[in-house]
Design a binder for these strands. Structure first.
Lengths: 228, 228, 228, 228
DNA sequence: AATGAATGAGGGTTCATTCAT
DNA sequence: AATGAATGAACCCTCATTCAT
């Protein structure tokens, strides 16, 4: 009596006519909604309790789901963190990249990008709290800025003794500023000021800095939370 | 069972007549030695496991003491962290301050201080790991540098849009650089490069920066671990 | 939330007028098929994971059904176990009884029955794994052999100090042998050897044993899996 | 600052004069007592709830200890089971071996051993319940009987078609009888009856069996529970 | 009927803290 | 002081069962 053993848990249960089963479609939609809900909640929880300090209970309370439901979606807090970071990365890259896609000059792109980043941090506490804890190095979120800055170096728009040190300065200043924005009140200009100092640090000349700072920031296009 | 718990704050246990008897003296010496041992171990443990990730077991194993002994000295890990940070602060301020006490020019003091800080980070992994996790803001460790930088501002040696932003840049860059030194190999110049970028960021003029960087760094005076 | 839960015991769903309509007939057939599928799968699962160690997931994966579907058929794993055992009992009694129905001599019937049982165990791993875990005492599966052995006692074909002890010997030896067949390789004769030892244990005389063992075993009549 | 790192948690904390520290001695004694208590309790729990059905709570309640204490001794129920079985093995081998060490004749040793085993089962419900669930094969507990039976075979005291089958008969009958003693009332002779049937099954001749059964059983030497 | 997302009770494990010696 | 066994609250994770579609 060999075991025929069906292929396990088909992804798509198609009805007799090949059309997607109604139940399946409904189920899927619900699934996606719940996942988005959990990630959305996770952003706040991680921001508040820290990446290490959060416990399952925090997430399920914030998302309004049952304990078991959590595990239907993520096998551990670590996985949830990954998913949240991935979502955030996509969202971040997307929203900033969209806004500066029409800028050609590398250092200007870079500078405006920092201003946008900092403005977002100032306007969205949860986002700021979460991002400020992330180690973004080597992550897609930093690919674009890194490319810009390399181009700027080749174009002699910046003057730094080493790329590694330059990136540490950039990321360090941003991260630290974000962290402190959560703790102490900071003026409305704080983001811009940080941008100025970073550009100064990179050796960008005064005039260029002034130009970058004078630029009106494009409208905020915050897209609604969606997964994938 | 809430925790009223007052610090046992041992007063001088004087013998009859008010003089310290022999047992007391011996006991005290032993006490100080054990405490130093625990803090020394804690530095490594915190560096390795993180400020949040360390458990009592890590400390007692590293210090080679029994579980109960730990509680004879510190009522909780949090208190140990405080004590460790305090010790580090003292040590840090002391060793750097000692080395630059003969410098008068504020920006030079500041710049050399950063170079010393980074050199220490590069040469002492545990120190680097521990300090890079600390939020030093408002802490005595930053008082002196802050004063120097304020004086530099008054002397128009630096040019920044805001002091808050300036300090975020300084601390952020240092902290981030320390963190990354632990993860990826960095060249021997990394510390100096960071110093250059920070000074550039503060708007210090080229020539001054060059002078600061040219200064030979005073010898390392690592004092032996002592408490209080 | 205690569980009052009455068995849904579906009565004939007859259409208006009392005749079975087409949908009902089709539905019933489908129902029977699914139930058979679950039980078939359960046999393997119980054999593999143990009576206690199997979880719902094992059954639904093995049967290729959805979680909810399981509960449409069995209110719990316990009930499924009962149903599986019942099916096995019927099948067992049937297939062995069919094969020896033409033997009149009680001890011969009994002996051949044991040989058949052991042959089945050797040829069907899942069956062996499942049955070896069952406590068959008092179950219909043992009624017939018990009757045979009682008759053999009356006919002085066996010589035992007590019927209880005799049955323990018989069931114990069979069960243990089955269990070990799963674990270690056993020669093709193992079943026959066990039969010999059991008969010896019951005090059957040598010659009779030899005759029983010499008998060709009737062909295997494995009936297809059907419920009720 | 290299880490001196003491050897972890010395087994023996000796005082200055090399004598065992008093605290250490006391602690050890207590530890041994608690361990014995847990194992003793485990025997009953396993007997009652089954090897698979017992949960941590059962053990800690039975042993009268706290949840955490359990884990100070055993990392899991599985480990506890192992320890319990090991203890039982030692105890079993010891107590039976002691009693028959003065018998030379292999089959007599073997037969008396079975009678002792069954007598113990009848007089100690927890023992019986636990042992009847164990798979003793390949375990030290069966080494001695196995050796005796092999010697008996060489001495032509028994007559079996295969050693494997013989051992299945022996263990199967004993195990099954033990299991049933727990469920249904069995006469005082049940153990002896099982012994007779087993010996018959092995082909021992009538007279020898009668002699073995006539032998007075040596006094029970139940040693007090001690670990190691 | 069939489906699979949601639920929450039950059970496992860790670890800070206490306390008798 | 130092020791380490004992404690139990806080967390983690699984899995039987329900229920809307």
């Amino acid at each position: 009596m060999p075991k025929p053993k069906k292929p396990p848990l088909r992804k798509t249960t198609a009805g007799p006519g090949g059309r997607l089963n109604h139940r399946t479609v409904v189920g899927r939609r619900r699934r996606a909604r719940t996942e988005a809900r959990i990630i959305e909640a996770a952003l706040h929880v991680f921001a508040e309790k820290g990446l290490r300090g959060a416990v399952i209970d925090d997430f399920i309370k914030a998302a309004g789901i049952a304990r078991g439901t959590f595990y239907n979606y993520f096998p551990s807090i670590g996985e949830l963190l990954l998913a949240t970071r991935k979502w955030l990365n996509d969202d971040l890259v997307q929203s900033i990249e969209d806004s500066i896609s029409d800028i050609d000059d590398p250092i200007t792109r870079f500078g405006v990008g920092i201003r946008l980043w900092m403005r977002r941090a100032a306007s969205d506490r949860a986002w700021c709290g979460f991002v400020s804890q992330l180690r973004l190095f080597g992550t897609p979120a930093l690919e674009k800025p890194l490319r810009d800055i390399k181009r700027a170096l080749r174009a002699r728009q910046i003057d730094v003794p080493s790329m590694d040190a330059a990136m540490d300065l950039v990321q360090g200043a941003k991260t630290y500023a974000m962290y402190r924005m959560l703790t102490e009140p900071r003026g409305a200009d704080h983001g811009n000021n940080i941008a100025i100092l970073i550009l100064q640090g990179l050796g960008v000349n005064r005039k260029t800095i002034a130009e970058i700072m004078r630029r009106p920031l494009p409208e905020f296009r915050r897209q609604p939370m969606t997964i994938r």
